[in-house]
Amino acid sequence: MNERVRATDELTAELLDVALEAARLAGDLLRDTRPADLGVAATKTSAVDVVTEMDLASEKLITGLLAERRPDDGVLGEEGADRTGTSGVQWVIDPLDGTVNYLYGLPSWSVSIAARKDGETLVGVVRAPMRGETCRAVLGGGAFVNDEPARTRPAPPFERALVGTGFGYLAERREQQAEVVRRLIPKVRDIRRGGSAAIDLCDVATGRLDAYYERGLNPWDLAAGDLIAREAGALTGGRPGEPPSGDLVVAAPAGLFALLQTRLDELGAWHD
């Protein structure tokens, strides 16, 4: 093994260890210290796009640990963390994905942490405490749920696909997204809306969904889950020929991916 490969492997192992520790601690904090009278601390894009005090506490915990373990790295977080590092490594974190679920006491919420090097995602961890699950992946090393390998389902016929999706917070975007669902749902087995993009991508990885798509995701929503889905055997992308982006994210196994991607493009799932 040459020294460059050895250095990359050692870096990836270190990043995975840090991501797992941060996701575990943040997940435990969110699960074990949720106030009974939890309220909204702020709103973002609209009155229904909320931030709770626990989002902020989780991000503070994660960024503090990263500053201690990896002080030269950059950080990009949903709740405002934005630090340019000098190491070439950037952490992309969603300290609480599925905030509205968490606010209402629903179990589908997660902590999502990814590490990139020179723009390429090397490590992804999604911890879903109420499921008792941690999904993880390293680039080229496969995906795991807890300690078991994660694999997508074989691609079903399009009409038997169970498809996950999500909705934005702006009224005009929701209206268009609802129209896409109205036109898509007669063509597939059914559609699910879980409320955490990171979990939805992991559900593709573990075979709980056949496919997933959504418009309007941010880098912290998809960075970890995208890697986990790909390492479990899924294809991911945006519009045909494009990578996943805020315009559109699609994840599905080969044999279903192109069919769904093309159909979503025809339905205008990439625009409001």
Rank of each mutant, 00 (worst) to 15 (best):
Q176E: 08
E175D: 13
R173F: 06
V188W: 00
C202L: 07
A161P: 14
R183L: 13
A197T: 14
R182A: 14
V180F: 03
P157T: 10
F158D: 02
R173T: 08
F158T: 11
R160P: 04
G195P: 10
G195Y: 08
F158Y: 12
G168F: 09
G166N: 10
R189F: 05
R160A: 06
E159Y: 02
G164K: 05
G168Y: 11
Q176A: 15
R189M: 06
G166K: 03
V181M: 01
E159G: 03
V181G: 00
E175M: 15
V188G: 04
K187F: 02
D200H: 02
G194K: 09
G166T: 09
G194M: 13
A178D: 11
G164S: 03
R160C: 04
L184A: 02
S196V: 11
R182N: 10
P186C: 04
D200G: 04
S196D: 04
L162Q: 11
V163S: 01
Q177K: 08
S196W: 09
Q177E: 15
R183T: 03
A155C: 02
L201S: 01
L184C: 03
I191L: 14
V181R: 11
L201C: 02
A178C: 15
L184H: 02
D190P: 08
K187L: 15
V163W: 02
A155M: 04
L170K: 15
Q177N: 07
R174K: 12
R189G: 04
E159C: 02
A198Q: 10
G194D: 04
D200M: 11
L184I: 06
Q176F: 06
P186N: 09
T165N: 10
Y169F: 15
R183V: 07
L170H: 09
A198T: 10
A198M: 10
I185K: 04
I191A: 02
R174C: 06
K187M: 14
E179R: 15
V188R: 11
R173V: 13
P156D: 00
I199K: 05
E172V: 10
L184F: 03
R160F: 09
L184D: 01
D190G: 11
D200V: 00
L162F: 09
I199E: 11
V180K: 00
A198C: 12
G164H: 05
A155I: 08
F158K: 07
I185W: 01
R192W: 09
A155L: 03
S196N: 06
D200Y: 00
G194C: 06
F167S: 12
L162E: 13
E175R: 15
R160E: 14
G166S: 13
R183S: 01
R183K: 09
D200P: 00
D190A: 14
I199L: 14
G194Y: 06
E175C: 10
D200K: 00
L184Q: 02
R192E: 13
R174W: 01
T165F: 07
P186K: 08
G166L: 11
F167N: 05
I185G: 00
V181Q: 02
F167E: 13
P157I: 12
E175S: 14
R174Q: 13
P157L: 10
R183Y: 00
P157K: 00
A197L: 12
R174N: 10
R174A: 02
L170W: 01
E172K: 00
V180C: 06
S196C: 07
